[in-house]
Structure formats: structure tokens, C-alpha cells
Amino acid sequence: MLEALTGLGLASAAGLNAYIPMLAMGLLSRFTDLLAVPPGWAWLENEWVMVILGVLLVIDMVADKIPAVDSINDIVQTVVRPASGGIVFGSGSASETVAVTDPESFVSSGQWVPIVTGVVIALLVHLAKAAIRPIANAATFGLAAPVLSTIEDGASIMLVILAIVVPVLVVLAIVALVWLTVVYVRRRRRRAAAMSPRPA
């Protein structure tokens, strides 16, 4: 159960930022005792993998804070974030699913389930993020992009920490994020309705 909650938190974090949970898992597994990735996922600890993830993280964080560029980045990330979600859910739930030498046994054993679960979770979070961003940018003339991006990065980091240290709080954190998203969208709609010209 705790492994599933860890996977849920990591995949949700990947839906907000693909690289934060992957880099965190590699660093924590290599340099601390908080997390040990299964042998099939040991490549996350590789120095070059972590350097590449770090560079991609910086690029993503910068691009995501620039109006219009953030929407283009979201299109690109429609593939990257779900893939990251599958990786971190699979490794976070301690499922050894990377090295597939026999596809038939891989399918029949159900080892693919954590990966697909992570892909779906990250995709749903990503689609919500990608849908809200253009609305916020249009309503604020682009001023919301850096603010929302910073909040999303912070939420991704928070989800990673909770998923690894206190996985039982992941559900509460996700519920809080959904609630805040709904509140934000409703406020934007009310504000837009109030600013639209009324017919004479």
C-alpha cells in the first residue's frame, strides 16, 4: 500500500514537472538511505543520467515561465511527463520492469501495470496543467506564467518529498492541489464574466 502511495505521489509530481521526481530518485538512491531503487532501475543513479536530467530540468523550468513558450513546452511535455510518470511509479513502487527480456512473461506477469498506471496519472495531471495555463496567461496578459510555474515546481518537489518520506500524506496533498485548481479556475471564470461587457 505504501509503495502504491509513493508511486502515486511521484507520478503526480511528474505530471507537473517530468524531471524533478526522476532526478530526486537518482540522487536520493545514490547518496542517501531514504530510497533504494530496484536493480532494474539502477540507471537512474548513473552520473550522466543525473547530469542530463539536471540540464533538462533547468531548460524546462526556464521555458515554463515564459508566456507562449510555456504552452509550446506543454505540447512537447505531453509525451515526456507521462513517460516520466511511468518510470517513477514503476521504480517507486519497487517494481522491476525495465529489463524486458521476454515480452510474453512481462505481459502475463502484470509487471507493466505500474508503468501504465504512472503514465495515466502523470498524463491526467499534465493535461490539467496544460489546460489551465493558456487561460491564466490570457487573463493576466502572461503575468501568471512564472507564478504558476513556480507554484507547480514547488508542488512537484513537495509531492516527491511526501511520496518518499510520508507517503500516507500524498492523498491529502493531491486532494489539496485539486481543490486549489478548482478554486483558481472558478475565480478566473468569475473575473472574466465580471469584466465582459454586458449587453445593453
Rank of each mutant, 00 (worst) to 15 (best):
R133G: 07
A192H: 12
A99Y: 04
V80P: 15
A200L: 15
V80L: 13
L148R: 12
F106E: 12
P38A: 04
T6K: 15
V51L: 14
D70W: 03
G26A: 02
A192D: 15
Y184W: 15
F141R: 06
P114R: 00
S109N: 12
I121S: 02
V37T: 14
A83K: 00
M22G: 03
A194Y: 06
L123Q: 11
G15K: 01
T181W: 10
R188W: 09
A4H: 11
G85H: 08
I132W: 05
V160N: 00
I161Y: 05
D74N: 15
V37A: 10
A136S: 15
A99I: 14
G92D: 03
V51C: 00
D74C: 12
A13F: 04
A163F: 06
L123D: 03
L57K: 06
A13V: 03
A176E: 01
L56A: 15
P21L: 05
G26C: 11
V49F: 08
S196G: 09
D70Y: 05
N17K: 04
L123R: 03
S29L: 10
A139V: 10
G92T: 11
R30I: 01
A144W: 04
V160K: 00
R188V: 15
M22E: 08
L162D: 00
G154P: 14
I161D: 00
G54N: 02
V120K: 01
G154M: 02
V113H: 00
H126Q: 14
V182E: 00
V171H: 06
P146M: 05
G142T: 07
V58P: 03
V170A: 02
N137L: 07
A36N: 12
V168K: 05
S93L: 03
L44F: 08
W41N: 01
W112K: 05
T97H: 07
V69Q: 08
R187H: 13
D74M: 11
V58K: 02
I75E: 07
A14I: 08
G86V: 06
P21Q: 02
S108Y: 10
V79E: 00
I161G: 05
L169K: 06
V62P: 14
V69R: 13
L23Q: 00
M1A: 13
T181N: 07
L2E: 13
T97W: 10
G118I: 03
V88N: 01
L34N: 10
V37P: 02
G118T: 11
A4N: 11
R190C: 10
A139G: 04
P82C: 03
Y184C: 05
D74K: 09
N17L: 07
L159F: 13
H126C: 12
P39C: 03
R198D: 02
I75F: 11
G7V: 01
A4Q: 13
V171L: 15
G9S: 13
I87Y: 05
L16A: 04
T117M: 12
A36L: 09
V160C: 09
R81H: 11
R190E: 14
V80A: 07
I121G: 06
A176K: 04
R189I: 14
V55S: 01
L57H: 05
G118C: 10
L2Y: 09
A173V: 04
A99N: 14
T101C: 05
L8R: 01
K65S: 14
Y19W: 10
